[in-house]
Computed example of a mutant assay.
Amino acid sequence: MRKGRLIILDQIDGRDCAALIDDGVLTDLLVDPSDDKRPRPGAIYRATTQRPMKGQSGIMLDLGNGQAGYLRQAKGIPSGETLLVQISTHADGSKAAPVSPKLLFKSRYAIVTPDSPGLNIARKIRDEDERDRLLEIAHDALDGADETLGLIIRSVADGVDSEAIFDDITAMRSAAEAVLAQASGAPALILPAQSAHHIAWRDWVDPDPDDVMRESGGLELLGFRDAVDDLLSPPARLSAGAWMAIEPTSALVAVDVNTGADTSFAAGLKANLAAAKDLPRQLRLRGLGGQIVVDFAPMPRKDQRLVEQALRAGFRADGIETALVGWTGLGHFELQRKRERLPLKEVLSK
C-alpha cells in the first residue's frame, strides 16, 4: 500500500464523500446526508426565541421550517427576540439542536469572528517575520470592514502565497457580511453547513496535488470501499486476533474489547492498548459521539494507568472535542464526545 497522504473525493450511494488516507490506512471519512433536513453543525439560522426552560438557564428557539434549537446560558434573553445562531452539534435523537450566538466563518486559512474584534495569529506560527506578513495581509483583507469583525489566521497559512490567503479571508469576510445583513426577519436557514468536499479542503492538510483523487469510483478502485463497509457493523479488528465491538444504543455508545482465543492478562493489556490507540479513529470514521462507555478486556488494575495514557494521547491528536471522564467502579472507562457528525450507519441507510 502506498505511503504518505491521499485524499479521495468520491461518492457513496449518490452522496458526496471525502476520504483521508494516511500511509494506506483510512483515517477520516466525511459523507453528505442525502435528504436530511435536520440542522447540521456549522449552519447559521435566523431564529426567534420562544420559551425559557424551567429550572435551566437555556431557552428554546424556532429555527423555521419546523426545526427547533436550544441555546444554553440564555439568562436575560426574552421570548420573541430575533437573533442569528450557529448549530454547535447534532441534536441527540429528536431533541432540539444545540446552538451558539457566537458565529464563526471558518475557511482553510482563516476564521472570521463577528462581535469578537481583533486580529490573532495561530500560536504554532512562531517566526516573527511570518507573523508580521500575515498580519499585513489580514489588515489589507479587512480594510473597510466593520470594526466588530475579528479574524484568526490558522496555522496552515504558514508560508502560503499571500494572494491565496487574501482571497480566502476576503471570501469569509463577504460571507460574514452577507449573513449579518440578514439579521432581521422570520426564522430561516441563512447559511447551510459546508459539504464533505469543502470540509476536506478546509481541514485536511493538502498533500501533493497528484495525491488528490477526484475520479469517480476512487474508493473502489484503490481498495477502500470494503473498509467503509466494515464501519457499518460493530466489530473493529485489532492485532493478534483481538477485536472490539462498537455498538450505539439509544443512551450511549458501548465499546467491548475482546482478546480472542488468548485470555491471559498479557493479551488483555495488549488488546486494550491497541483499542485505546484505535478508538479515536473508529469513532471519527463511524460518526459517533455522546456518552461512550468502554469495557476493556480483563487486566491488572495497575495497568489501567497505561491504558488511560494511551487514550489521552489518542484523543489529544483527534480533531473532535472529547472529554475523558475516567474509570467507573465496575472498571469501565467513560468518555463524552461532541456530536459533530451524524452516525455513518444512519447517513448511509437513507
Score class of each variant (00 low, 15 high):
residue 65 N to A: 15
residue 204 W to K: 00
residue 170 T to M: 06
residue 287 G to E: 05
residue 197 H to V: 05
residue 210 D to N: 11
residue 146 D to E: 14
residue 76 G to Y: 10
residue 267 A to L: 15
residue 147 E to L: 07
residue 43 A to Q: 09
residue 83 L to D: 07
residue 259 T to D: 06
residue 238 L to N: 00
residue 263 T to N: 13
residue 17 C to M: 11
residue 105 F to Y: 08
residue 328 T to K: 05
residue 60 M to N: 10
residue 147 E to D: 13
residue 273 L to M: 12
residue 201 W to I: 01
residue 288 L to H: 01
residue 96 A to K: 04
residue 201 W to P: 00
residue 143 D to P: 02
residue 269 L to E: 08
residue 171 A to Q: 12
residue 180 L to Q: 10
residue 350 K to P: 05
residue 16 D to I: 08
residue 141 A to G: 08
residue 206 D to G: 00
residue 111 I to T: 14
residue 312 R to G: 09
residue 220 E to L: 15
residue 78 P to Y: 04
residue 334 E to N: 11
residue 299 M to Y: 01
residue 268 G to K: 00
residue 318 D to I: 07
residue 350 K to V: 08
residue 140 D to M: 10
residue 328 T to M: 07
residue 141 A to N: 06
residue 111 I to Y: 07
residue 10 D to G: 09
residue 110 A to C: 13
residue 112 V to N: 09
residue 110 A to I: 01
residue 326 G to M: 11
residue 89 T to M: 08
residue 184 S to W: 05
residue 195 S to F: 02
residue 207 P to Q: 03
residue 123 R to P: 02
residue 333 F to N: 06
residue 177 E to D: 10
residue 254 A to M: 06
residue 66 G to P: 01
residue 262 D to G: 14
residue 27 T to R: 13
residue 272 N to T: 04
residue 142 L to V: 10
residue 133 R to Y: 07
residue 65 N to H: 14
residue 12 I to C: 08
residue 234 P to G: 09
residue 206 D to H: 07
residue 129 D to Q: 09
residue 188 A to D: 12
residue 223 G to D: 01
residue 210 D to Q: 12
residue 17 C to G: 06
residue 12 I to D: 02
residue 345 K to D: 13
residue 197 H to K: 03
residue 134 L to Y: 06
residue 46 R to I: 05
residue 243 W to G: 03
residue 209 P to V: 12
residue 45 Y to D: 11
residue 23 D to H: 04
residue 17 C to N: 04
residue 290 G to N: 07
residue 179 V to M: 14
residue 52 P to S: 14
residue 21 I to K: 00
residue 191 L to S: 10
residue 119 L to G: 04
residue 10 D to Y: 05
residue 181 A to L: 07
residue 247 E to R: 09
residue 52 P to V: 12
residue 87 I to T: 14
residue 188 A to M: 08
residue 291 Q to A: 09
residue 180 L to C: 07
residue 123 R to T: 14
residue 216 S to V: 14
residue 97 A to Y: 04
residue 309 Q to W: 01
residue 285 L to H: 04
residue 300 P to S: 11
residue 127 D to H: 13
residue 238 L to F: 11
residue 185 G to N: 12
residue 338 K to I: 03
residue 165 I to K: 02
residue 52 P to W: 10
residue 249 T to W: 05
residue 238 L to V: 10
residue 152 I to Y: 08
residue 33 P to Q: 05
residue 114 P to L: 07
residue 103 L to P: 11
residue 201 W to R: 11
residue 259 T to E: 04
residue 202 R to H: 08
residue 255 V to F: 02
residue 165 I to Q: 01
residue 263 T to S: 14
residue 42 G to I: 08
residue 346 E to V: 12
residue 348 L to V: 13
residue 254 A to L: 06
residue 239 S to H: 08
residue 122 A to H: 12
residue 215 E to W: 08
residue 199 I to H: 00
residue 230 D to L: 09
residue 30 L to I: 04
residue 9 L to K: 11
residue 213 M to Q: 12
residue 67 Q to W: 02
residue 138 A to E: 01
residue 61 L to N: 06
residue 306 L to S: 15
residue 298 P to L: 12
residue 73 Q to A: 13
residue 231 L to R: 01
residue 196 A to H: 02
residue 223 G to Y: 09
residue 317 A to W: 02
residue 17 C to L: 08
residue 19 A to V: 10
residue 236 A to Q: 03
residue 7 I to F: 04
